[in-house]
């Protein structure tokens, strides 16, 4: 058993002429909650795609729970709970059937009802997902991610489309999973939520990890005030980086 849930070494992902992820090295320990921050298009989802083997690195290696997602993808994903970004549920399938499908495929015997209770969806358990609002779909996907007590939760933009209650639910669940010693890796561009739940934060910009550390460490690095919000920090880091790149071009 590896001590690290996620280990990326020099991972680069190129699409035709664009570099989505650029020489990314990153480690998430097996009991850590890691917030993966960055503006839209920074390469967060691409990175997560490589963890799940939706996509494969052009260069570098990725190890998830000690295994290579490219060769042992199914085994790796058996131990992962995954909430993808820009996914779609099956419109005609009920919430219960969605969960039953995941439960059966993972070969565990969780109770769909209990899982939906955790995300607050029990009242629509037999309704087809096609009738759900964006927030309800997001809750459903979160319940699916929780099937089989995963060792690692990968949540890609989990707050998308959620109302304040939903945001609170996600945060509570992340908190509960943390206490269960699940590693959590989640990406977000909604900054306020990240500081509330994360042990460590990495800031991705233009495919590069431009800063990494605890909130305090990040603050210290830019000589920010003690009460500098994560938003200030984020802007400071990405702004510098933007300036650096534009100057570099000139």
């Amino acid at each position: 058993m590896s001590d690290n849930s996620i280990e990326l070494r020099g991972v680069t992902k190129r699409f035709d002429n664009t570099v989505a992820v650029d020489d990314l090295s990153l480690t998430v320990k097996d009991d850590e909650t890691y917030g993966f921050l960055g503006p839209n298009g920074a390469g967060k989802s691409t990175t997560i795609s490589m963890l799940l083997d939706y996509q494969r690195p052009t260069e570098g290696t990725a190890r998830v729970l000690g295994q290579d997602p490219q060769t042992d993808g199914a085994e790796v994903r058996a131990k992962i709970g995954n909430l993808p970004d820009q996914y779609s549920t099956y419109n005609k399938l009920s919430a219960r059937r969605h969960l039953q499908f995941v439960i059966d495929t993972k070969g565990v015997d969780d109770d769909p009802e209990r899982l939906l209770e955790r995300v607050g969806l029990t009242d629509v358990i037999n309704e087809p997902a096609g009738t759900f609002s964006q927030g309800m779909k997001q809750r459903l996907a979160l319940a699916m991610a929780l099937v089989g007590e995963p060792e690692l939760l990968i949540l890609d933009e989990p707050f998308t489309g959620l109302d304040p209650h939903g945001v609170r639910t996600v945060r509570d669940i992340v908190q509960a999973e943390r206490e269960r010693d699940t590693a959590v890796f989640f990406s977000s561009h909604i900054l306020g939520q990240v500081e509330l739940v994360c042990d460590r934060i990495g800031i991705l910009h233009n495919g590069r990890l431009i800063a990494e550390g605890t909130l305090d460490e990040l603050r210290a690095n830019i000589d920010a005030d003690e009460d500098a919000s994560i938003e200030d920090i984020f802007v400071a880091y990405t702004h510098d980086s933007v300036r650096a790149t534009t100057e570099g071009v000139r």
Partner: peptide, 20 residues
């Protein structure tokens, strides 16, 4: 269709190989 809509991410995120 599932690739375009994104629902293919569900089975591919589960313990299934692409062959599966």
């Amino acid at each position: 269709k599932e690739r375009r809509s994104g629902s293919l991410k569900i089975p591919l995120g589960l313990p299934l190989t692409r062959t599966d």
